[in-house]
C-alpha cells in the first residue's frame, strides 16, 4: 500500500496533466510520447534526465532529513546556492590542490557551506524560537545576494558578459562519461545515490538518526528521554543544509565548471515535491527524484517539439502529482471503501 499510493498518484497526476494539454490544443498521446522519448530516447537524453535528477535527489533528501525532526526546510535553494558558490570559489582560488583530492575538497567545502547555511536556521529555531519556515525563506534571499556580490564583484569571469565566476581549475573537473554523448553526467551521479543510501543508514541504523526521528515524532517524549531538542535540531538542519549544498558538486564541477548566477531552476523548491512524493523515505527519493528529473527534461523538450505547450507544463504536472499524493482523505476513503466491500 505504501508503494501503491505514490505510483497511483503519479499516474493520476500525469493523466490529468495530459488532459490539460488536450485543452491547449495538443494531442495528449503525442505529448506523452514526447515526454517518454525525451527522457529516455537516446543516451544523451537519458544523460540529461540524470543530470536533472541528481540535484533533485539531493534537495529531496535535504527536505526530508529536516522533516524527520519535524522541521520544514524551505531553504534548500539558498543552501545549494551557498554550496555551489563554495565549490566554485574553492575551484577558482585553490588551484594547487592535486587532481585526485581536489573534487573531494570542493565537495567538503560545498557541504560545509550549505550546512552552515542550514545550521543558522537550525540555531535560530532552537535557541531563539524563530520559525524555520520564515528564516529559511529569508536566508534564501541573503544567499542570492551574497552569490551575486561574489559573482559580480569578487570573482567575475572577465571573458564573458554572463554573470559567472572564473572557471574552476582543471584539477577540480569531474570527467563526464563519454557514454552519455556530451550530457554532463559524471561520477557526481553516484554521489547522489550513495548519499541517499547513507542517509537511510544514518536515520534508521544510528543512535543520532534515532534521536532525530524521536524529536520529530514527539518532542516532549524525546526530551523526557534526555534527548537535547535544540542540539538535535541544529545538527539536523546542518545535515539537511549540507545535503543541499552537495548539489554544487555536480552542477559546478562537471556541468558548468563555474558558478553561474541563477543557475538553479528552483531545485530547492522542487526538492520539497520530491520528498513528499517519496513520503520522506531516502531510498524512495532516488526514484521520485528521477521521476521529477524526467519531467523536467521532458518539459524542456515540449518547448521544442510542440506548438502550444511550454515547459511550464512540468510545474502543472508536479502540482497535480503532489495534490494526488497528499489528498489523504480521498485515499483513506477509497481504501476503506474497498475494505467494506470485501
Amino acid at each position: 500500500m505504501n508503494i501503491i499510493r505514490p505510483i497511483a498518484a503519479t499516474i493520476i497526476g500525469l493523466f490529468l496533466g495530459l488532459l490539460v494539454t488536450f485543452f491547449a490544443g495538443e494531442n495528449p498521446l503525442n505529448v506523452f510520447l514526447i515526454f517518454a522519448t525525451s527522457g529516455f530516447g537516446s543516451t544523451y537524453d537519458f544523460g540529461m534526465t540524470l543530470t536533472y535528477s541528481m540535484p533533485l535527489i539531493l534537495t529531496g533528501l535535504s527536505v526530508s532529513m529536516a522533516f524527520k525532526s519535524g522541521l520544514f526546510n524551505i531553504g534548500a535553494e539558498g543552501q545549494l546556492t551557498m554550496g555551489a558558490l563554495a565549490a566554485a570559489t574553492a575551484g577558482a582560488l585553490f588551484t594547487s590542490v592535486p587532481a585526485f583530492i581536489a573534487p573531494i575538497f570542493a565537495g567538503i567545502c560545498a557541504a560545509l557551506a550549505g550546512g552552515i547555511w542550514g545550521g543558522i536556521a537550525g540555531y535560530l529555531k532552537a535557541k531563539r524560537g524563530a520559525h524555520e519556515v520564515i528564516t529559511t525563506i529569508m536566508l534564501n534571499f541573503i544567499a542570492a545576494g551574497i552569490a551575486s556580490y561574489v559573482t559580480v564583484y569578487l570573482l567575475k569571469d572577465p571573458n564573458t558578459q554572463n554573470p559567472q565566476t572564473i572557471p574552476i581549475s582543471p584539477n577540480y573537473k569531474l570527467e563526464t562519461f563519454a557514454f552519455f554523448d556530451s550530457a554532463p553526467v559524471s561520477s557526481a551521479l553516484f554521489l547522489s545515490v550513495i548519499v541517499a543510501i547513507l542517509v537511510w543508514i544514518f536515520l534508521y541504523r544510528t543512535p543520532l538518526g534515532y534521536e532525530i526521528r524521536a524529536v520529530g515524532s514527539n518532542e516532549s517524549a524525546a526530551s523526557t528521554a534526555c534527548i537535547s531538542i535544540s542540539k538535535t535540531q541544529i545538527l539536523n538542519m546542518f545535515i539537511a543544509g549540507s545535503l543541499a549544498g552537495l548539489v554544487g558538486v555536480g552542477e559546478v564541477l562537471s556541468r558548468a565548471e563555474c558558478f553561474k548566477l541563477d543557475f538553479s531552476p528552483g531545485y530547492g523548491f522542487t526538492g520539497i515535491a520530491v520528498a513528499f512524493l517519496a513520503r520522506g523515505n531516502p531510498i524512495a527519493i532516488i526514484f521520485s527524484g528521477f521521476l521529477f528529473g524526467a519531467l523536467q527534461k521532458g518539459a524542456s523538450d515540449l518547448e521544442i517539439f510542440t506548438h502550444n505547450v511550454t515547459s511550464d507544463l512540468s510545474l502543472v504536472l508536479q502540482a497535480l502529482i503532489i495534490l494526488a499524493v497528499s489528498a489523504d482523505g480521498l485515499w483513506e476513503k477509497i481504501l476503506s471503501g474497498k475494505k467494506v466491500k470485501l
Binding site: Y44, M48, S182, K260, D262, F263, S264, P265, S300, D301, E303, I304, H307, T310, S311, D312
Partner: peptide, 19 residues
C-alpha cells in the same frame, strides 16, 4: 520552422544541443 524561448539559463545549452 519554430521558435523556442529560453526560460532559464540551464535550458539554453540543452535547446541548442537538441536543435
Amino acid at each position: 520552422s519554430k521558435y523556442v524561448t529560453v526560460k532559464e539559463d540551464s535550458q539554453s545549452p540543452h535547446f541548442i544541443r537538441t536543435l
